[in-house]
Amino acid sequence: MTSDSRLEKILEKGEFAVTSECGPPRGADPEVIKKKGELIKEAVDAINVTDNQTSVVRMSSFSSCVLLKQMGINPVLQMVTRDRNRIAIQSDILGAAALGINNILCLSGDHQKFGDQSTAKNVYDMDSIHLIQTVKQMRDEGKFLGGEELKGVPRFFIGAAANPFADPFESRVVRLAKKVAAGVQFIQTQCIFNLDRFSKWMEQVRDRGLHEKVHILGGVTPMKSVGMANYMKKMVPGMDVPDELIARIKGVDKEKRSEEGIKIAVETIQQLKEIEGVHGVHVMAIEWEEMVPRIAKEAGLLPRPQFE
């Protein structure tokens, strides 16, 4: 074990892991994140907290993680390299470790153009692969990037994202291989709607033996409506929503479409469980967190294993 993370323990024991995520509020009210945490905590092993996702300013991932931690939840600190240089990154890593956060998801982050602060300057002192290397070096070598010794080593379970649906397709597994070489231990993928393409990517992952070096958690997002499906297909770059899926949701009565979305999510999880090398799922129910326990239950993922 490289950390005290419950998520790491679950995966190391060979259990099929379940994670989910909470978006922090656009304000200073701590109850919002606590309420979201309360809704899903029994159904998951760890909860990600997004870091100003889509470059819209929100409560920091760091403080939201601490709020969840206080509730007995195992938080995953998402950290993007868009907003911090290596000084701030290493400083936040130490602070998060000191407050008992033991999972970190290393990301480059959405470009600021998409957010509510589009006139901002981005940082990108490093990319997500460098962030993985940074956390690993601090943990395993006890050294800052500058080479000086750390006094007190941060013990993190290191994660990153992978998007099998972005282009060029052949480069996606290469990028995963680089993340593995950098020291990543778990991967949460982009929302999977196209299982064929995901399966093809997993084949490449297995061909390189990467599935034995990293725990892959498949991303699952329930579609609330046809509108949401269309939005994700057309407006979100690197998202692959097949027409058949939209047609399937369209095919049922309007009031039953969200039910159909849940059903598809459950089926997706069941199919993911059968794919060699997939060690868990990451359920992203966007502003629909209350559905996470139900999806987990119907997919046969409950109850979650408990440890002393």
Binding site: R82, D127, S128, I129
Partner: peptide, 29 residues
Amino acid sequence: CAKSLLNGPCGGSSDGKCEVNPETDCGWQ
């Protein structure tokens, strides 16, 4: 690359274009 990434295309590379602007070619593509 709009993010000056040094190690490959980000998850927003789509059909050879950058997520920041559909008219901009993805540098890593």
